[in-house]
Amino acid sequence: MESDVAAVYDDFGRRWAHDTSPLYEDWATGVAADRVVVALLDGLPPAKQQPNLIFAAARWEGCPLLPYPEWREWLLAHWEQVQATASTRTTQTNEPNRCATLLPVLSRIDGPVALLEVGAAAGLCLFPDRYSVDYATPIGPQRLDPADGPSTVTLACRLDDAASVPERMPHVLWRRGIDLAPIDPADPVALDWLATLIWPGPDHDRRVARLRGAAAIAAADPPEVVRGDLLERLTDVAADSPQDATLVVFHSAVLLYLDAEQRRRFAGLVTGLGAAVDRDIVWLSNETRGTLPEIDAQIPAGADTSHRFVQTRNATAIAFAGQHGALYETVPFRT
């Protein structure tokens, strides 16, 4: 039977890295076909087998950015160092450009909002109102700036419908995050690790500069990111939000790190959260296909989900959102 690790790496290479990071596609498909390397990965705890974590750990330890045969030779010679780094670090892709795909929903919520992100890392996605955004639309470019003028960080996103362009920035009253290992956006070593998690390739080079610019904004006004398990802390952190704001619980590429039972528990918690804390709640989710079966059932037949999250509002699928925020597509869900 094919190893689960091999299947995960093959899917990562062919579905996620394909056409966006040629080197990671080469490494991932190489691992998938390599029994020796798969056996090494099989010896790690499941949470430490992730392609992005292993590849970032190897880069952190100084691996060459070379084709798979040369990289494999280096990996086998330095496996203990890579394993040690992977065991002490986690995958925390804190991509601020994802805010561009949150704004179409956030801007259409009446009144002020309170933002609660689960899996917040350094909290860079808790500042959707502090970044400028350039939207490419079918009727031409559209720009959205913060209320106090253009930001030092500009996001970029392609829309398939000009009607999705936000007319205004949300009025954010409160920001809070939950993470197993919160990151200080002012910590240069922690920021270097976040930068290492960004995939190599020309499509990703601009993400490093954007990450560092967003970290400077967050460091100047750091949000509180509560350390803890999202299943244990969600209700009490939500209860601290202001009652005169709509609480938006949001996340991107977080639930895939939970098992099926934990995902079901989380969905139940969020669904009942409004009653539990006596707040108006919006649940805004960007997650991969295969996360929750009831969401998968809403994906249009034949839709291309490569490099895309399924965005849901209160468990209703409304759009495809690019994995790093570069696109936002609503048309498939209206036809």
Rank of each mutant, 00 (worst) to 15 (best):
M1S: 13
V5E: 13
G13K: 14
G13S: 03
R14S: 13
P22N: 08
Y24L: 06
A28Q: 01
G30F: 05
V37L: 15
V37R: 11
A39M: 09
G43E: 14
P46K: 09
K48N: 14
L53A: 01
I54L: 06
A58I: 01
W60D: 13
G62P: 12
G62A: 13
G62Q: 12
L65N: 01
L66F: 10
L66M: 14
R72D: 02
R72T: 12
E73Y: 13
L75S: 13
L76M: 05
A77E: 14
W79N: 14
W79K: 15
V82C: 05
V82Y: 04
Q83I: 06
R89E: 03
T90S: 14
T91Q: 01
C99R: 00
T101P: 07
R108T: 11
R108K: 10
D110L: 07
P112E: 10
A114Q: 01
L116A: 02
L116P: 02
L116R: 01
G119M: 00
A120H: 04
G123H: 03
C125W: 02
C125L: 01
P128Y: 03
R130N: 02
G140T: 02
G140A: 01
P141S: 02
Q142E: 10
Q142H: 10
D145L: 07
D145P: 06
P146R: 00
P150M: 00
T154L: 02
T154C: 09
A156G: 08
L159Q: 05
D160H: 08
D160C: 04
D179C: 07
A181Q: 14
D187T: 13
D187N: 11
D187V: 10
D187F: 09
I198Q: 04
G201A: 04
H204S: 00
H204D: 03
D205E: 14
D205C: 09
A209P: 04
A219M: 12
P222E: 12
V225P: 05
V226S: 04
R227H: 09
L230H: 04
L234C: 04
L234Y: 02
A253T: 10
L258K: 01
Q262P: 02
F266V: 06
G268V: 05
G268A: 10
L269P: 03
V270C: 11
A275F: 03
A275H: 09
A276F: 08
R279T: 00
D280P: 09
V282L: 12
S285E: 11
S285N: 11
N286H: 15
T288F: 12
T291I: 12
I295M: 06
A297S: 09
A297I: 09
Q298T: 07
G302V: 04
A303H: 13
H307N: 15
F309Q: 03
T316I: 10
A319E: 08
L327I: 13
E329A: 15
T330L: 04
V331T: 10
V331Y: 08
F333C: 03
